[in-house]
Nucleic acid binder design. Structure first.
Lengths: 205, 205, 205, 205
DNA sequence: TTTTAACCGAGACGGTACGTCTCGTCTTCTT
DNA sequence: AAGAAGACGAGACGTACCGTCTCGGTTAAAA
């Protein structure tokens, strides 16, 4: 066998400059032409890079975009947890309002939507997408709810993970389907409604 | 308008036979190769039809698939409304279980997911998708909830449309992201949790 | 056999108006876009005629053009023979000059060239082209030469048909290949040279 | 210039193997199906080559065929000049007989006729056709005649270029129009007749 | 210090599908 | 029955990208 094509490239010799240019170009382009018309050739051209340099390090244009977007998000992230002022409702409302604002920003929306869409179609990418972007956020909510549960603000019988789905599902669905605008009124109302489901029942069952 | 190309074809002379063959072929193919590898050429070939006959009547492969799937769904539909036995929880659980089963069926899942994905990326298609497939179902839920509200089973302060989002959002999100299996346990739990949010509060605020 | 497609159409019911419109449109179009880009569809559209009306009466676009051009030529033709003033050289020079002028006219050149080209590629059309357009002209020359031969101005050993080829071959070749301009100097020189070949030899062989 | 598409490809990296396969395939195919039914797709398929590889290097199927045929002819050519035994008539007869035989060979005839026809319709191609195939041959004749003129076998007043037209025009016209067979009798007769036009006149004018 | 091995920019290559164009046939309705 | 209109199956057009594969050219570690 003369050549084993997928010969692992040597990471230590990787050109950081090329990598950055590629990631930047892909985010720019997805904003300009949209995901379906985003092509590897265009990314390479815009980045001033050979196509092979992309194929060497990423398996698909979705993977490029995922990494580009992950970098972008991590670079402007505080990392901590959700605020815990003791007032669960206020905390959730604040965070969900902020999230809604973020999802309304065009620069964020285009690549994130592209990744969400691609993930829905490609389970392998979905895995990466979940691990790198969706899960971290989801876990913060789950932990905050668990804290509230320990504080007796949430019925001990409720599964916090399901509760997070109850909160984020409607939000994401509305965003993805453009069923309606992500106003603060919406997010506030959503929080209120969800909390009604989570509060401990006053008396006996 | 720069191009005169889309000169309206004469609908009355449209070949019903070709139309059927195209719709059937597209559903078959999307099940076999998946949406991204579904091509107009393959549909035409499978249907025994010229490509132009597809381009004449549909603007995109997504539109073909939407029509194909709409036809399919309508042909096997009862049309009535959601059951109303008076027991809201039982009714919702039954319907959501049935929906979960439907979404677990491979023949249904492939084209529906393809359409959902394409819709998320293409607002124009999304409009059609919503009108033809999503809204009709959503409205049935909304009506059932309104009936329950009139019967005093749901807090009059709750917006039934938001309530539907609360019920279907987590369901669809879990399905689209493959976050977990659509078991009956999941749907039952979801219904229970949602109803806790909807029930009238026993005493004062 | 359910249907014999080439069912002879009934000539007596043919629409003279459509025929004229088709012929006129084809000559116009060949002048505008050239023969290779001349399409049946365009002819039909320009003539305000169904495509089938063309296919019913002509086997190919070349045939349409041939008929169109034949009509055109015959309508403006005197029909007589070549002039015979007794001065063979003067007569031939005059006729060849006139022919050169005709071939330099754009309105004549485009369709005639188109037909000549198509004929070279399609023997069946070539037959029609020869019978209807080339032969009549050629025969006039042959007769004039035969008259001159009878008058002793041409060597009796020379085959008049070959002589015509000697005269017209260089002319047509130059025109077809655009090897050079069809000036009067050229045609005069050609006539003189050819006549040198045809004159009876003064003395013994 | 509206389009930047024809960005010059890098000739040094051109695949000689593909080029050969394309040229071979085009000659084969033009012999099998004729020029009008020769398609770029078929050439690409037969050559085992992507269509783009053809479009990258040639502007049209005619250009492909011209290069193919040029290669073919040059590969089996001696290149020298016309024979000069001192006997002009014998030399010309021999060469014209050989040419007639060549033009009667099916393998030669199909592509050459295709090119001649395409040239008559397309001046740009005609230029290439003339430079690469027609002119070289024509020049050999012109030189031979000039030699004969210097030797006093041809009237010094005769233009050798016109004389070549007189010789080759009838030949090519007969071949192109299929007016008659290219027999040795024909070519011999043609040579004799032409020489009568070229011989110096014995006495005064 | 020289060699050597990888990455890199560049882009030609064999392919697939695109959306358009025209072909010649067919069907429907009008005259 | 001919004709205007145009939908249809077919298939080539020329373009855009795909992912793979050479090409020199530049680095950086190994010899």
């Amino acid at each position: 066998m003369p050549s084993a094509t997928p010969k692992n490239p040597d990471v230590s010799r990787r050109s950081a400059h090329s990598r950055t240019a590629i990631l930047r170009a892909s985010v720019e382009l997805v904003g300009e032409v949209g995901y379906p018309r985003l092509t590897i050739e265009a990314i390479a051209a815009r980045a001033g890079v050979g196509k092979q340099t992309i194929y060497r390090w990423w398996p698909s244009k979705a993977a490029v975009l995922l990494e580009a977007f992950t970098d972008l998000v991590h670079s402007e992230e505080h990392g901590s947890g959700l605020p815990d002022t003791g007032d669960l409702e206020a905390d959730l409302k604040a965070v969900l309002r902020a999230t809604a604002d973020e999802f309304s920003d065009a620069g964020f929306e285009a690549p994130y939507r592209a990744l969400a869409v691609a993930s829905a179609a490609d389970p392998e990418l979905a895995e990466q997408f979940a691990v790198r972007l969706r899960e971290p956020g989801r876990k913060l909510y789950a932990e905050r709810l668990r804290a509230a549960q320990r504080a007796g603000q949430i019925d001990p019988a409720v599964d916090p993970d399901l509760a997070v789905e109850l909160l984020l599902g409607p939000f994401q669905q509305r965003w993805l389907n453009r069923t309606g605008p992500l106003t603060h009124a919406f997010t506030d109302g959503l929080v209120e409604l969800v909390l009604r489901a989570l509060t401990p029942r006053s008396a006996a069952d």
